[in-house]
Design a protein around this nucleic acid. Structure first.
Lengths: 136, 136
DNA sequence: CTGAATCCGTTTAGATACTG
DNA sequence: CAGTATCTAAACGGATTCAG
């Protein structure tokens, strides 16, 4: 039977490709940055250390779960330091590591590109939608 | 009543913040780039135009659905051109627009940062996991 | 060849309640 | 204050099927 060829080939390709992707540094970086809250937290910490609740307020729409979870992965990746002061109640500050700080220029260059070109993207989008709605 | 304060305040904040985010160009760019297939398609088109099936093979693990869907959004965003040649059967080529081409340097600089610093991230991750498994 | 439409399992993220 | 645990709704992505 020829029924499995297409899907199977794609499957085989997928496995090989996923392995390749898993080893791609750019991919990994994008995976971090793509997280909705990562860049926001990084930006919030750009000015200096902040406490947990402080972050939670500054970033507004974030839930406790997402904030904690994102901070954990950032800490694990060595981008953020978690500083515990064993007072009562306990006090926890988060701050950028040197590595985390080095990410800021990248974010800024990204922002620069976005600020420059996103208007063109918007325009393209509007034109596309107009064309579509006209039935073109 | 004080029962609604926490969740409600977060909700109110969320609405305001989502509106803010929706207007943030950097956010929009990251939203595009965060798509698993976007950067891969962009990279695949860096050398020149490619046909649909050609892309599908080159990118391996991608499904028809995702390939088509991603190409559509890229087209809508003005990053990719869709060129139809009305032969039988029909032939469709995809190519980077000028705008899409301008994204390549950004991706390269991102890649540069990643290649430089991801090893440090890996190391931090390994150290973190080691600490955790020790019960620290 | 190039897609659109549909079904469906997996993952994700938010709300809520509880702990030290 | 700074989280953890659990439940559930929604988004995502893959396979399959149909069409021009």
């Amino acid at each position: 039977m020829a029924t499995m060829t297409a899907a199977r080939r794609r499957q085989a390709g997928k496995i090989a490709y996923d392995a390749y992707l898993a080893d791609c540094p750019s991919r990994k970086l994008l995976d971090r940055l793509s997280d909705k809250w990562v860049t926001l937290i990084l930006a919030a910490l750009a000015d200096g250390p902040r406490r947990y609740n402080d972050l939670s307020r500054k970033i507004a729409g974030v839930s406790q779960k997402m904030l904690t979870q994102t901070l954990r992965t950032l800490e694990r990746d060595g981008l953020v330091n978690r500083v515990v002061t064993p007072t009562v109640p306990v006090r926890v500050d988060y701050e950028l590591t040197a590595l985390g700080g080095e990410l800021l220029p990248v974010l800024r260059s990204l922002k620069l590109w976005a600020d420059t070109h996103i208007p063109a993207v918007e325009a393209a989008r509007a034109a596309y939608d107009k064309r579509s709605s006209r039935g073109g």
